[in-house]
Measured scan of single mutants.
Amino acid sequence: DFYKILGVPRSASIKDIKKAYRKLALQLHPDRNPDDPQAQEKFQDLGAAYEVLSDSEKRKQYD
Rank of each mutant, 00 (worst) to 15 (best):
Tyr62Cys: 02
Tyr3Leu: 00
Asp35Ile: 06
Ile14Gln: 08
Ile14Ser: 14
Arg22Ser: 11
Gln38His: 08
Asp55Asn: 11
Lys4Met: 08
Lys19Cys: 15
Gly47Pro: 03
Ala48Tyr: 12
Ser56Asn: 14
Gln44Thr: 13
Arg10Lys: 14
Lys60Tyr: 13
Lys60Asn: 10
Arg10Phe: 07
Glu51Gly: 09
Val52Phe: 04
Pro34Ser: 10
Val8Gln: 04
Lys60Ala: 09
Leu28Ile: 04
Pro9His: 05
Arg10Gln: 10
Gln44Asn: 10
Arg22His: 13
His29Gln: 11
Tyr3Ile: 00
Ile5Pro: 01
Ala25His: 07
Ile5Phe: 06
Lys18Phe: 03
Pro9Cys: 12
Asp16Leu: 10
Tyr50Val: 05
Ala49Cys: 04
Pro34Arg: 14
Leu46Ile: 10
Gln38Lys: 10
Leu46Arg: 00
Asp55Gln: 07
Ala20Gln: 12
Phe43Lys: 03
Phe2Ile: 04
Leu6Asp: 03
Asp1Ala: 03
His29Phe: 03
Tyr62Arg: 02
Asp36Ile: 06
His29Tyr: 06
Tyr62Leu: 02
Lys15Asp: 10
His29Val: 05
Ile5Met: 15
Ile14Glu: 15
Lys18Arg: 15
Tyr50Ile: 05
Pro9Tyr: 03
Tyr21Asn: 02
Tyr62Val: 02
Glu41Met: 12
Gln61Asn: 14
Asp45Met: 15
Lys18Ser: 09
Ser54Phe: 04
Tyr3Glu: 02
Ile17Ser: 02
Ala49Thr: 01
Ala20Arg: 08
Gly47Lys: 12
Pro30Ser: 05
Ser56Asp: 09
Pro34Asn: 13
Asp31Glu: 10
Glu41Lys: 14
Ser13Ala: 11
Lys18Asn: 08
Asp55Trp: 01
Lys15Phe: 10
Ser56Lys: 11
Ser11Thr: 09
Leu26Asp: 12
Tyr3Phe: 03
Lys15Trp: 10
Tyr21Gly: 03
Asp55Phe: 02
Ala25Trp: 12
Ile17Ala: 02
Ala48Val: 13
Arg59Gln: 00
Ser13Glu: 12
Ala20Val: 05
Asp36Tyr: 06
Asp35Lys: 14
Lys58Met: 08
Leu53Asp: 01
Leu46Cys: 05
Glu51Lys: 12
Pro9Thr: 11
Glu51Tyr: 03
Lys60Met: 11
Gln44Gly: 09
Phe43Trp: 12
Tyr21Arg: 04
Gln44His: 15
Lys18Val: 09
Asn33Phe: 15
Ile5Gly: 03
Pro34Thr: 11
Leu53Asn: 00
Tyr62Asp: 03
Asp55Ile: 04
Pro34His: 11
Leu46Ala: 09
Leu28Pro: 04
Leu6Phe: 05
His29Gly: 06
His29Ala: 10
Lys58Leu: 08
Arg22Trp: 12
Leu46Tyr: 02
Tyr50Asn: 04
Phe43Ala: 04
Pro34Gly: 13
Tyr21His: 07
Ile17Asp: 02
Leu53Phe: 00
Tyr3Gly: 03
Lys60Glu: 13
Leu28Gly: 05
Glu57Tyr: 11
Asp45Pro: 03
Leu53Val: 03
Val52Thr: 12
Val8Cys: 07
Lys42Ile: 07
Lys23Tyr: 09
Ala48Glu: 15
Tyr50Glu: 01
Ser11Leu: 05
Lys18Ala: 11
Lys19Pro: 01
Lys58Asp: 01
Lys4Trp: 03
Phe2Cys: 06
Gly47Arg: 10
Asp35Val: 08
Leu28Phe: 11
Val8Asn: 00
Phe43Thr: 02
Lys4Arg: 12
Ser54Gly: 07
Leu24Glu: 08
Lys18Leu: 06
Glu41Ile: 14
Ile17Gln: 03
Ala48Cys: 07
Ala48Asp: 05
Leu6Arg: 01
His29Glu: 13
Asp1Glu: 12
Gln61Trp: 07
Pro30Glu: 08
Asp45Cys: 09
Ser13Gly: 10
Lys18Trp: 03
Lys15Tyr: 12
Asp55Glu: 04
Leu46Ser: 01
Lys23Val: 13
Gln44Leu: 10
Gln61Met: 15
Gly47Tyr: 06
Asp31Ile: 08
Ile5Asp: 03
Ser56Met: 15
Pro37Asp: 07
Ile5Tyr: 07
Arg22Asp: 14
Leu26Thr: 13
Leu26Met: 13
Ile17Cys: 04
Leu26Val: 09
Glu57Lys: 13
Leu24Met: 09
Ala39Met: 05
Phe43Glu: 02
Gln61Asp: 08
Tyr62Thr: 02
Asp35Arg: 11
Glu57Gln: 10
Glu51His: 09
Leu53Met: 05
Gln44Pro: 01
Glu51Gln: 12
Ile17Gly: 02
Leu26Trp: 12
Glu51Ala: 11
Pro34Tyr: 10
Phe43Tyr: 15
Gln44Asp: 10
Lys23Phe: 09
Arg32Gln: 09
Ala25Met: 06
Asp63Val: 09
Lys42Ala: 12
Val52Gly: 02
Arg10Met: 10
Phe2Tyr: 15
Leu6Ala: 02
Ala49Gly: 01
Phe43Gln: 04
Tyr62Lys: 01
Pro30Arg: 06
Asp1Thr: 07
Asp1Pro: 00
Arg59Met: 01
Arg59Asp: 00
Lys15His: 13
Ser56Gly: 14
Ala25Pro: 00
Pro30Trp: 00
Leu26His: 07
Asp31Ala: 12
Leu24Ile: 10
Asn33Val: 06
Leu6Trp: 01
His29Ser: 12
Ser11Trp: 08
Asp55Lys: 07
Gln44Ala: 10
Asp35His: 09
Gly7Val: 00
Gln44Trp: 08
Lys58Val: 03
Lys23Ser: 15
Leu53Cys: 01
Pro9Val: 09
Leu46Glu: 00
Lys18Thr: 11
Glu57His: 12
Tyr21Asp: 03
Glu57Thr: 10
Ala25Glu: 14
Asp45Leu: 13
Lys19Trp: 07
Gln44Met: 10
His29Cys: 04
Leu28Tyr: 09
Asp55Gly: 02
Ile5Ser: 04
Gln38Cys: 12
Asp31Asn: 09
Gly7Pro: 00
Lys42Glu: 05
Leu26Arg: 12
Leu26Glu: 14
Ser13Thr: 14
Lys60Trp: 08
Lys42Ser: 07
Ala39Lys: 06
Ser56His: 10
Arg10Thr: 14
Lys4Ile: 03
Ala20Gly: 04
Arg59Ala: 02
Asp35Pro: 06
Leu24Trp: 06
Glu41Gly: 11
Phe2Val: 01
Asp31Pro: 05
Asp1Met: 04
Gly7Arg: 09
Leu26Gln: 10
Glu51Cys: 04
Ser11Lys: 11
Lys19Gln: 08
Tyr3Val: 00
Gln38Val: 09
Phe43Val: 05
Lys42Val: 09
Ala49Arg: 00
Asp45Trp: 08
Lys42His: 11
Leu24His: 08
Leu26Gly: 10
Ala48His: 13
Asp63Gly: 04
Ala12His: 00
Gln61Ile: 14
Arg32Phe: 05
Glu41Tyr: 07
Lys15Ser: 11
Pro9Glu: 14
Glu41Arg: 13
Ala12Ser: 07
Asn33Gly: 03
Pro9Ala: 10
Arg32Ile: 10
Ile17Lys: 01
Lys18Pro: 00
Lys4Ala: 07
Val8Phe: 00
Asp31Phe: 04
Gln61Cys: 10
Gln44Cys: 07
Ser56Thr: 14
Arg32Val: 14
Lys19Tyr: 08
Val8Tyr: 00
Leu24Tyr: 06
Lys42Thr: 06
Ser56Arg: 13
Glu41Ala: 10
Ser56Leu: 15
Val8Thr: 03
Glu41Asp: 07
Phe43Ser: 03
Val8Lys: 03
Ser13Cys: 09
Leu46Asn: 01
Gln38Arg: 14
Gly7Leu: 01
Pro9Asn: 07
Ala49Tyr: 02
Glu41His: 07
Glu41Pro: 05
Asp36Ser: 08
Arg22Asn: 07
Lys60Gln: 13
Ser13Arg: 07
Gln27His: 05
Asn33Lys: 05
Lys42Arg: 11
Asp31Thr: 12
Pro9Trp: 03
Ala49Val: 04
Val52Tyr: 07
Ile14Asp: 13
Pro37Gly: 06
Arg59Gly: 00
Ala49Lys: 01
Pro34Trp: 08
Glu57Val: 13
Tyr50Gly: 00
Phe2Glu: 03
Lys18Met: 09
Asp16Tyr: 07
Glu57Leu: 11
Pro9Ile: 05
Ile17Leu: 06
